[in-house]
Every structure is written in structure tokens, then in C-alpha cells.
Design a protein around this nucleic acid. Structure first.
Lengths: 219, 219, 219, 219
DNA sequence: AATGAATGAGCATTCATTCAT
DNA sequence: AATGAATGAATGCTCATTCAT
């Protein structure tokens, strides 16, 4: 009975071993630059073995994506669920959290963001697609919850929280990709952190209601 | 001399003819889906001829990119230079202008944004690269100028205008790509327009100084 | 001793179980379309297990072939040994018998005939090869015996009986494959049965001696 | 104006050059044994070039098939249209003609016959498929015409001429493949020629009406 | 200027087969 | 006896790019 368990564990480890190798290779060569063979080599396995664990190259990439989404969601949940912070402070903390995700593995995040907006998405098996969809939705909901809370507490203007989450997510993704692009066009120092911080600050200010002493709400 | 001129004009026309074909093909098939042959076919030319006008597929794509940047810059300039608008109104108008660029040719804009954040950028000839850089810089500067003006007029908080421009650009690119991605994951109605509008409104609110009754500035 | 026997019996059953599965899979997918894995799946066994019973895919296929040959030989023997029929009638009955073999499992017969005339034959182990050879020889001899009998009875012309058997066999195989091919090129109704019947009739007429002038009638 | 012609001619030569190489390679290695690369090598071209002239491996093989069908049809026409022969003699001559086709290039004929009865047929482009179909039909019709003539002349029994042609073709194909198979199982001297001759003789006898002195027809 | 023709260099994927357990 | 896991070895096909004409 321990045998089955061990088998199971080993299988999971193999899978992770492949994902790790894929992460390294995709990071350095991009999706199309990375050949299945090169990933297999990095994983010290044969290409055929990869196909025992992943249906094809796209799905391997998508699985990586999924893992990143999980990390992201965890971070978002941490912020969102932090009882000690006011909504306004959570917005700020969210910015820091997102930055940490970036800093943890910039290249793979970039790849993931590129993947999310690429043609490859179309050919995924519906199973994986719905998992990714679910992960994305969870992330969005987590962010939206922060705004929701602020709105309920009457410290934020009553905008659609999902739309606000879309904006936060977009500005994050946009800045990451833009930084990457800028770096290619014109290598310079990391501008992401301060800009992201500024963006979150502006968003916070933009949604906060002025502390109206007399109860008359702003626009 | 007239001959040389005609030659020159014809050459430019040929070039444009190819770019137009490329735009159509890239739009419908994406970068990797579009083969040089298919573009040539669309342009009613032979593949070899394309190489007389563009060094390779990447540079053809990049040139398309440049054209789009020009359209963009023009739009931005229009808004930025519109004397009749206050900075706060310009922010709003900028959002509309960006949306118009999207609406004019969504697919090619998406492609361009994807290209901007892709690996392909790396292998461009330095000449094109610097042209694109210049176009991007111009766009950024145009946006930044709006903020600059607001800051000088003391209606905007004194943030770094370039950083603000980065944020505007990022939120725009992010939303466009995110909309595209959302549509793949979960086809639904166009959410870009209202969300972009909201984003610009929030940014405006976020950077505007509160109308201080007594001249004492806020934070 | 009983144990060894049981073992033996079980082993034979397993083998047959695999052969049955293989028959189904080869029938529906053809030789190259059928993967070892798909056969194993059909047999509810692992691919590795198949290799305990058959040296490789070719030999598995060849064994199927052998079984078909056995069925065929039995049918031929029945006709050939039927004391109540005159040689001329046996030719006719042979045609019916061959058709029955076809009708019993057309697809597998087609596969077998294709296999018999394929490159795969070359790589068989000599043991199986000689078994197949023996089966074929037996079939041929069975058919030849009918002609032999007619010749001895002076109702058939004195042709080489083996050559006649080759002809019968070839026309059968040829018609079956040709029907299959015709069906692909131009789907139409089953023409095999009447044509095979006609072929056998013609062959019979072709080898029969004319009823000799001395009043002893032919069939 | 001569240029276009020369181009055309060169193109046809290239095509033939590839077909010739393919013939050699398919002959010696069979369809699946022959790789596109090996054919290209034999033709002293790159694999990619083959694809300029043939859509894929199947169609290259099919084109070979077509050429063989043409040769065959020509031979059949010669016999069929030979005014100096009586139908009975034509049957005999047809046997010799078919044998000549075999002798001209046994291996490729075998391949073609195998191809005709293989799974590959299914995936052909409809254009080629219909060409092959047409070639086959022509061959069949040519053979049938001989029988038709005999029937009209009242020297042959009134069987369906197409069915008779099917039989002739099948016995030919069957014998060729059977000889090949026999040779694999048991290398021996060429038995095809005498057996084919015998088969044709038997068929002739089988369809000929007995020279009824009194006009009373046989069965 | 234009192109027909050719190709080098890749690459994802399949599958029969093996072997430690 | 049975198999889960692994893989070596292939291979058909694509496509950006070149170059003689």
C-alpha cells in the first residue's frame, strides 16, 4: 500500500522536474525558441517522456502558466484577506505583492503574460483552458474583493469592482511588458517598482472618496 | 531627375502595397501564422520581391508597427496640442483617442502590442530598432506633456510625467491585451471601452489636486 | 503435473485473448494504423505483456494470419474431401467456401492478404515463416487435390494441378483486394460474390474436358 | 517566348527525375521503408524540393502509379485494337502483354498493386484519386472490350464483359502478388509466366462457346 | 525590378520495444 | 506473470531566405 503512494509521489516529482526545466528553458529562449528537445535535455529526460506527462508543448507551457497563477493568487489572497489593513492600504500592499511575484521570477512572468495574450491559447485542451480561466477569475475576484470592501465601507467610490480589478491587472501586466520592451529598446535601470507603486497610489487616490465631514458624497 | 523621382515614388508605393497586404494577413493569422508566401500572395508579388523592400519578416512586421506608432502619435499630438482643453479634460480625451486607435484596427493593434513585447524585437536591425524607439519615445513624450502641463498649472500633483505616461500607456496596452485574452477564455461583450474610460477617469482623479479652497496644497 | 497443465492452458488462453483483441483492432485500423498500445488496451493488458506472448508486432500479425489460414484450410478440406461431389462441383463449392471465409470477416481477410503480399513478411522469424509457408502449402495442396482428382477421373484436362491451384487462389485474393480497392475508388455494391462465382464457373469450364464423342456425358 | 517553353520542359523533366528516383527507392524499400529524404537524395535534390512538385509522399507514390497505369493501358489498347486477332487470340495476347508489363519493371508493378489495395489510397487528394480511378477504368474497359467483341461475334458466352475484365485483372494482380509472396516464403524459379499463360488459356476456354455446328448454343 | 526555383535547417510528435520492479 | 515508465530512433513536412536569370 506504500508502493502506490510512492509511485504517486514520484510521478508528481517527475512532473515538477519537467516543469522546472521547462521554466528555465522557456525563460531564456521564449516559447517558440524553446524546443521540446531542449527542455527534455534540461530535464535530463528523453523528449518522448515529456509526452507522458504533458499532451504537447502548448499544454506544458500552459501548466507553467497555471503554477504562476497559483502563486499569484496566493499573494493576492494574503493581501485581500489581511484583516489589519484598510482598503486603501490594501491597494498599496497589492502593488507590493504583485511586484514580489515579478521579482520572484521576472522572466517566467513575462512569458506567462505573453502567453496569456498569444495565439497559443486558442489550441489548448478545454480542460486546461478552463483551469486557466478559473485561475484568472480567482485572481480577478481577489483583487475585486478589495475594492468591494472599500466601496462597502464608503471609502471608495462605487465603481464596478470587477472593472477596477481589470484595470489593476492590466496596468500591472502592461507595465511588466512595457518595462521589458523598454529594456530591449533602451536598456536602463529598473523602472518597474517605482512606477508600479505610483500607479497603485494613483489608483487608490482615484477611487477614494474625499473624507467628506458632512456626509455629502462626492461625484 | 523627374525619372528618379518617379522611381522613388513607385518604390514607396510598392512598399506600401506590401505593408497593406502584410497588415491584412498578420491581422487575420497572427505573426507566426502568417507566412511570407501568404503575404506575397496577398500583395500579388513573389516572396522574393518582398525581400527587395524588407530585410526579413521581422522587419516587415516592425515597419507595420512603425506605421501604427505614427497613427498613434498623431492622435496623441492632436489631444496634447488641443489648446481648448484643460489638462484634466485632455486625460479623458486621450482615453477616447486611444480607443479610436484600437477601434480603427483592433487586430493589428493587438499584433503590434504583442510584437512590442515579444522576443522578435531582439533581432531587429539597429536602424529600425531606433526608429521604433523614437516613435515610442515620441508617444510617451506626447502623453507626458499633458501631465507636465497639468503639473505646471498646479492642477496635477507633481509626479514624474514620464512615469505617468508609462502608466497610461501600460494600462491601455494591458487592457487591450487583457480584453483579447478574456475573449479567448470567455467570449463576452466588449468591455474595453467603458473600462478604458474608467481607467482614465481614475487616473485623472488620482493625479488631480483637490481644489484647495485656501490655496494650501494637499498631499 | 496438473499445475503445469493448467499453466499451459492459461497461457494459451491469454494468447488467444490477445489475438482476438488484435483481430478487432487490425480489422478496424489496418496494420500500420493499429498501435501496439491500442491492441493492448483492447486486450485489457499492458503493452509490455504482449511481448511476453509475441516477439513483436509483426509476429502478432503473422499469428493472426496463421489462424486465418487454418480456418481457410479447414474449409478447403471440407470441400476437397466431400465424397459426394464430382470434381466439377467441387470447384463450384470451393468458390462458395472461399466466399464464406471472406464473409466471415472481410476486413481481417483483406488485412491478411495484404500482409501476405507485404514487405513485413521479410522480417519474420524463420519459425513463423515456415509455419505460414506450411499453411499456405496445405491450402494450395487442398485445392490442387480437387484438380488432381478431376484429372485422374479424366474430366479435367491434364494441367499441372498446383498451377491450377495457384490460379484459383490468385483470382480469389485478386478479387478480394480488387473489390476493396474498387470500393475506395468508387463505392458501389458488393460485386465480389457474383464475380467470384463466375470466375469459378469459367475456371471449371476452362479445365473440363469436352464430353468426349463416345457418349459419356460431362457434367 | 522560347523561354517559357524551356521552363515548362525543364519543369517536366524535374518532375520525371523525381519520379524516376522515387521509382528506384520505392522499388527497393517499399512504401513505408522509403523515406522522403532517401528519395530526395536519390534524385539529388533537397526534400523540400520534392514538395514543390508533389503535395506529399502519398501523392508522389500515386503519380508513379499513374504512370504505370498509362503503360498498362497502352499495352492493353494495343492488344484490344489489333484487328488481326480473333477475340480468343486476343485473350492470349493480353496475357503476354500483361506479362511484359510485369517484366518491364516487376518491383514497381508489385508496389503499385500493393498500393492499389492499401490504406494509403484513402487519403489522396480527390484530383489524383479521380485520375487513378480513370486510369483503372480505362484499363478495365480495354479488357472488357475484348470480351465484348467475342460475345458480339458469338464466339464467347454472353457473360458480363466487365465482370470478365475484373476476373482477368484480378488473376493477374493475384498471381503477381502471390508469386512475390511465394518467393519470400520459398524462393524458387519464376512461375508467373507459365501460370499466367495457363490462366489466360483457361479463361479463354472457359468463355468460349463450343463451335456448335448447328447453331444450338451451349449453356 | 522581379521572380521561379531551390533549399538548409528545423521540430513536434509517434511508437515499437525494453526493463526494473 | 505482469506492468509502469522510459526512450531511441525516426520522419514527413514547413518556411524564411537566397540567387541565377
Amino acid at each position: 500500500m506504500g508502493i502506490a503512494e510512492r509511485r504517486e509521489r514520484e510521478k508528481r516529482m517527475r512532473r515538477q522536474q519537467i516543469l522546472d526545466a521547462a521554466k528555465r528553458v522557456f525563460s531564456s529562449k521564449g516559447f517558440s525558441g524553446a524546443t521540446v528537445e531542449s527542455i527534455a535535455e534540461e530535464a535530463e529526460l528523453s523528449p518522448a517522456t515529456l509526452y507522458l506527462y504533458f499532451k504537447n508543448k502548448d499544454e506544458l507551457y500552459a501548466s507553467l502558466n497555471l503554477q504562476m497563477l497559483e502563486v499569484l493568487n496566493q499573494k493576492i489572497q494574503e493581501v485581500s484577506g489581511n484583516q489589519g489593513l484598510a482598503p486603501g492600504e490594501k491597494i498599496k500592499a497589492l502593488g507590493e505583492a504583485l511586484y514580489q511575484v515579478y521579482e520572484f521570477d521576472p522572466l517566467i512572468l513575462i512569458n506567462v503574460l505573453q502567453f496569456q495574450s498569444s495565439e497559443a491559447l486558442r489550441d489548448l485542451s478545454s480542460e486546461l483552458l478552463s483551469e486557466i480561466k478559473e485561475g484568472s477569475t480567482t485572481a480577478l475576484r481577489g483583487i475585486a474583493k478589495i475594492f468591494q470592501q472599500g466601496i462597502e465601507e464608503k471609502t471608495f467610490k462605487p465603481h464596478n469592482p470587477i472593472a477596477l480589478a481589470d484595470i489593476v491587472w492590466s496596468v500591472f501586466a502592461g507595465l511588466v511588458l512595457w518595462e521589458e520592451s523598454k529594456r530591449t529598446l533602451n536598456p536602463e535601470k529598473n523602472f518597474l517598482r517605482p512606477t508600479l507603486r505610483l500607479a497603485m497610489e494613483i489608483i487608490r487616490k482615484g477611487v477614494e472618496l474625499p473624507p467628506s465631514a458632512n456626509g455629502i458624497p462626492g461625484t
